[in-house]
Nucleic acid binder design. Structure first.
Lengths: 142, 142
DNA sequence: GTGGATGCAAACGATTTGCAAGCAT
DNA sequence: ATGCTTGCAAATCGTTTGCATCCAC
């Protein structure tokens, strides 16, 4: 039983919700999928394991996972919402290939520090931030 | 006649398109609106000047302005696409208030330099980037 | 048994598209 | 006259919601 599964169970219990086999399957599949999945992509993977599962359930469960702190929404240029689960490994930013869609994560402590400074200079209190670089990945530069 | 209007006319001509009073009105209104407008917001302003104008035309013209290099799409958290026209004044990033929606622009040369370095380190060729900080603006911190 | 969870289909909001009519060239 | 552009309505896409049924507690 994974740590995330434990966290989710506690969240479920604390809020008087119920653990179902769909929720278990969705969490498991979500955790297994590396990177940044959209609801639709996750759904496509899920129907192979449970053809009866509904897209609405995927959306509802992803929303639950966000509330539980196990997932985080991300919006990159295309119209879709993507969900990330490995953000706990520590904050990171993204390099996105505009050709193949590959997403490369990176972390640069100095940039983070400077961003904090910008926020302070403008008297904002920060909640979160995003830094996204769009371009061509090494493979797509031809 | 503004510089942008000139650029637009050239673009129209070069692509064998036609200049219409709707396109003129939309460009003019778009340029006048400071900041980051959504198609719907622009449309609301426009129907006061020309009640017959269609929302589809607004979308089509904004798309044209993007192609002509006079506008740029931006996606902030909410579901709407926003259009920016003053990005030519030089690149800048955004501080967004999650409470009142105010958008404060800023520019920090050192951050830009570091981002270029990150891109180089990963062998990407950059096209553009965005840095967005979400939090509470001074007014909303109560 | 009861209330939350499901799958489906319908509803939704933002954006796009097909079409007949209008207007710039 | 030609064909790009318009406004309208219908279509589309991603996401949410209503509802009857189902299932975890």
């Amino acid at each position: 039983m994974s740590k995330e599964s434990e966290v989710f169970r506690r969240y479920i219990e604390r809020n008087n919700l119920k653990m179902t086999k769909q929720r278990e399957l969705i969490l498991e599949t979500f955790l297994f999928s590396r990177g940044h999945v959209s609801a639709e992509e996750l759904y496509q993977t899920l129907i192979e394991k449970d053809p009866a599962i509904g897209l609405a359930t995927v959306y509802r469960t992803l929303s639950l996972l966000c509330d539980a702190g196990l997932a985080q929404q991300r919006h990159f240029g295309d119209g879709q919402t993507r969900y990330e689960h490995d953000f706990e490994q520590g904050h990171h930013d993204h390099l996105i290939c505009v050709n193949c869609g590959k997403i490369q994560e990176f972390f640069h402590p100095h940039i983070e520090t400077l961003l904090e400074q910008v926020v302070a200079d403008h008297n904002f209190t920060i909640q979160n931030h995003r830094v996204e670089l769009y371009g061509l990945c090494p493979d797509c530069q031809k």
